[in-house]
Design a binder for these strands. Structure first.
Lengths: 363, 363
DNA sequence: CTGTTAGCGCTTTCAT
DNA sequence: ATGAAAGCGCTAACAG
């Protein structure tokens, strides 16, 4: 229970004026020494720099921002940091931006697009120059706000097929589609799906859509009772899988729209004594360490987690500098096959349409 | 390959002056309506608020910062976001700060205390009001800098025994100590340790020290060949464990100073056909999902990941508001026992000092 | 190449 | 309760 003095910023810090005085120049020259050293006489430059060093001068970025209309801060608004994914993307973003002298202001919206709008407003108020968002779909008022305040932004983790706005991501639908194809090729015919709630999550929705499309193309039904929605957390995914396991026509393969959900499903199987992959195959998306280290390892989609962050940073820096940039980037992904997928218990090797049942040994 | 116009902040945004004009008041009153509404006549207040709404006025935080000497931004400088831990703490920090109108500026230093100093300097330049750091130990110049610029800060994830600076964390040494005690109590006598590199990581160092102390107190040796240092990543931990497994006197229990290292060790065991816990027990620290979901589950220490972030935010807000605050908080932790620990292969139930070997069945 | 001047948008005395 | 005026620290525009 300490009773400290209120946090006051006492002694005024050394300002450009102090440096100017010591170096015998004007503040304008101090400013130039910092921002356009090539326009300063080498001898003068040295005097100024000496003075800066002597006084340990740190420019007042806030004053600079007010005058120059640029804060050199970028807002990163992500759904959540609980899922390690966005933390890693943000880390890459931060590292790259930092190399260019930009700072990252962080905010979460917890899959609430209305809150995302609020948060963006706050960050504009705080003065950020540009934004990175996750997902392609947002509140129209968000785009209006960004337009109003002339803030460049880039959408990540998805692609806008119509290329209306700058996007850096990959084709989530294709990812779901390919994973479903993999299981179909293994001989599965009875599927379950564990999806993140669709609200405010276009990545999950696209992945699910890809899965549904692949099954439909193969003439396979995915009854809604075989689709479970669960918040992105192990416990809720586990419960979702329990419901799937309790189904009369239990699926032989369960596709989760991300690794956390998939691992939650694996936990449910372990608890229920259901063997993976002998009794049921499970797949995730994102290829996280969480999935890769399971026993058996989780078959997943390797998504460009770090590349997205880096590319987003580079695009924004280019734009803020008025340079050319590639507005839409579709990055590659690929499937990583591990032990969690195998042919179904009674695998119909033949491309039968019905739930055929021909006994077959598994690898 | 788009060639866009340079990102210009065109049309000057609506400022307090515009609101004042529309409401028929001065900018001073607009300011008061925002910051001291109780000092404004209710009727006037309403007019001003209407005008703000009509113009969708968003205050210019940068200008406000320059004038008021407070940016309402807090810098969070963490070692890395790759280890999900700090992301979760930062998430809690951000949520709490956000409720009080503060934004979080994020930076990593990758366990380089010199870079941490640099980064802090940058964030001061960007104008943050206060800082959160991870760990108790830092470059003395960092503290000098913070002192110079009058920036309050709180150190997290550790405790300063001498209570010289505000700290919110837990006793890492005790955590390591208790975990080692657990394994000793199970009958283990030959130990290995996988530690994060000690440089710039006082949490790891303290945990290791606690482990060493517990072993020493039990009269057990921990030869340096049985201590492996590995960067906090699965692959390097796996290699470290491989070295431990190759030892002539292979340990029956391996203590890792965090969950990532422990899981890496588990991977090495699986690859080598070494059974957990029958052949070797493994423990981690931090009780992450990564460890909890392994087969068998990882015995670990539940650390106050979220509480640290929340408490740090609350302390800083209190300080910045000039309110009282608790400078030093030691939060509790506890051990979580899972399947990765069991008595050693040939457990000497008796408190033997030598590497006795009496056959014994395991649970 | 360098200095002078003005002012970014806000808050804050100091009057009234 | 409200307004006028000053100025936070810097950079941009313009002279010279």
């Amino acid at each position: 229970m300490d009773a400290p003095p209120p946090a006051t910023r006492t002694r005024t810090r050394t300002a450009a004026r102090d440096v100017a005085l010591l170096a015998g120049v004007s503040t304008a020259t101090v400013s130039r020494a910092l921002n356009n050293p090539e326009h300063v006489d080498p001898a003068t430059l040295e005097r100024v720099r000496d003075a800066m060093a002597k006084l340990r001068y740190v420019p007042h970025g806030v004053a600079r921002s007010l005058r120059s209309q640029r804060s050199r801060m970028v807002g990163a608004i992500v759904p959540s940091f609980d899922y390690a994914l966005y933390a890693r993307t943000t880390s890459a973003l931060q590292q790259t931006l930092s190399q260019h002298g930009y700072a990252v202001v962080l905010a979460e919206h917890h899959y609430d697009l209305a809150q995302e709008l609020q948060v963006a407003r706050h960050l504009i108020e705080h003065g950020v120059d540009a934004f990175v968002f996750v997902g392609v779909e947002h509140d129209p008022r968000l785009f209006a706000l960004l337009e109003d305040y002339g803030r460049p932004f880039v959408l990540t983790w998805g692609v806008d097929p119509e290329r209306r706005r700058p996007c850096i991501g990959f084709d989530n639908r294709a990812a779901g589609h390919q994973m479903a194809r993999h299981l179909i090729a293994l001989g599965h015919r009875r599927f379950g799906m564990i999806s993140a709630p669709l609200d405010g999550n276009d990545r999950g929705r696209e992945r699910g859509a890809g899965i549904r499309a692949a099954l439909a193309e193969a003439g396979l039904a995915l009854h809604e009772s075989h689709v479970q929605y669960a918040p992105i957390a192990l416990a809720s995914a586990q419960e979702a899988m329990e419901r799937l396991l309790a189904l009369p026509q239990r699926p032989t393969a369960v596709l989760a729209t991300n690794d956390v959900l998939a691992v939650g499903a694996m936990m449910a199987c372990r608890a229920a004594g259901v063997r993976i992959p002998q009794d049921v195959s499970i797949t995730g998306v994102d290829n996280t360490d969480l999935g890769a280290t399971q026993t058996p390892g989780l078959t997943s989609v390797r998504t460009p987690i770090v590349e997205i962050g880096r590319a987003a940073a580079e695009q924004l820096v280019a734009r803020l500098d008025g340079r050319e940039y590639v507005a839409n980037q579709t990055l590659p992904f690929d499937l990583v096959f591990r032990g969690s997928t195998a042919p179904p218990p009674q695998a119909p090797a033949a491309p039968a349409r019905s739930t055929a049942r021909a006994p077959r040994a598994k690898a």
